[in-house]
């Protein structure tokens, strides 16, 4: 059985008295010890899906309108807030995109790590500090003994993200959600942080949902991939199958927009146009205004997710033909 199963999840944002859908009918699952990549341009609903799984949409203008999120056999949406909080930071943890602002500037990093331990474990102050030192060592912060009493502003962006990972891994969660964990970092640091996460995964066996707009990162790290566009999954496959049988024009567009050094292309191919705003209505296939292969059915009916290969589904009228 999968560790996490998302079934028909729909999310909408309340705006001026109406509900605008931002994620529609989204289903996927993550097996234990596996890594799922979620990829798409900004504004396609990746982060909101992650926040929904984590339980961080409470109290915002964004609401889950239907579907279920089954984690470890329990539907998270049916749990009481206290039960939900017992899972947050404990069996399920999250690393955010902005390491510069994700730590509280007024507390020392040691305090911010031990806080989550003391929330979920029966543990003395001394033990939790010892564990925090181990965690800092684990995320390869040099001289943890000196660093544990630093304030966030005394650390570099890469180090702060390592601290965020230490906080997330503190209770050895079964699932780690990483929302663009390296986007805000220097290129040289990006690789180190990704390697660190994969290294921690092999040690602890945690499952990871890695959200990224970069297919290259996904290709290197993930077992399975879900491609999202305008709140829908438009292609879903194992990483191997995705790159072997890439079917959706949008996925191909994403791949073509990655710069490579071994081709002779002088320019990058960008996907024309932009993601329409959530208040704009598009009939038929949501991608058709930007698609090079648009034909009559595309503008009229929305395509369904169709299996084209084993473990490979595509939401396109011409899947496998183009």
């Amino acid at each position: 059985m999968a560790l996490l199963e998302i079934n028909n999840l729909s999310i909408a944002v309340a705006s001026q008295g109406q509900l605008l859908p931002v994620v529609t009918d989204c289903s996927f699952s993550v097996a234990a010890h596996e890594t799922l990549g979620v990829v798409g341009e900004s504004g396609c609903g990746k982060s909101l899906t992650a926040l929904a799984i984590m339980g961080l949409l409470e109290g915002s203008q964004v609401n889950i309108t239907s579907g279920s999120i089954v984690f470890d056999g329990r539907d998270l949406l049916q749990l009481r807030p206290a039960q939900r909080r017992a899972i947050m930071g404990n069996q399920m943890a999250m690393v955010f995109q902005e390491p510069m602002t994700s730590l509280n500037p007024v507390y020392r990093i040691g305090e911010q790590i031990t806080e989550v331990l003391q929330q979920h474990r029966k543990i003395t102050h001394r033990e939790s500090r010892q564990r925090a030192l181990e965690l800092l060592d684990l995320v390869k912060i040099p001289h943890p003994q000196d660093r544990i009493d630093s304030y966030p502003h005394q650390l570099s962006g890469g180090q702060r993200q390592r601290v965020m990972i230490a906080i997330a891994m503190a209770c050895e969660p079964a699932l780690l959600i990483a929302d663009e964990p390296t986007t805000a970092l220097d290129v040289t640091v990006q690789k180190e942080v990704l390697d660190l996460m994969l290294d921690l995964q092999t040690r602890t066996g945690t499952s990871i949902i890695l959200i990224s707009h970069d297919l290259g990162v996904i290709a290197e790290t993930c077992d399975e991939v879900a491609v999202m566009y305008r709140g829908r999954i438009i292609e879903k496959a194992t990483t191997a199958s995705l790159f072997a049988n890439m079917a959706h024009p949008y996925t191909r567009g994403l791949l073509a927009s990655i710069p490579t050094i071994d081709t002779d292309n002088d320019w990058l191919q960008a996907i024309p146009g932009r993601v329409p705003g959530i208040d704009e209505k598009v009939n038929g296939c949501p991608f058709h205004p930007r698609c090079a292969h648009t034909e009559t059915p595309c503008t009229q009916t929305a395509p369904r997710l169709i299996d084209t290969h084993p473990h490979h589904a595509v939401r396109c009228h011409f899947a496998g033909e183009i």
Binding site: M54, L56, R85, A86, I87, M88, G89, N90, A93, M94, F96, E98, T101, S102, L103, N104, P105, Q112, E115, V116, Q119, H120, M164, I167
Partner: peptide, 21 residues
């Protein structure tokens, strides 16, 4: 601010998030 989301992601009680963070 972002760090409040981090605090909530730790599973802290909302009152604790309100006061401490």
């Amino acid at each position: 601010e972002d760090h409040v989301r981090t605090a909530r992601a730790k599973g802290l009680h909302p009152a604790r998030v309100s006061i401490k963070h």
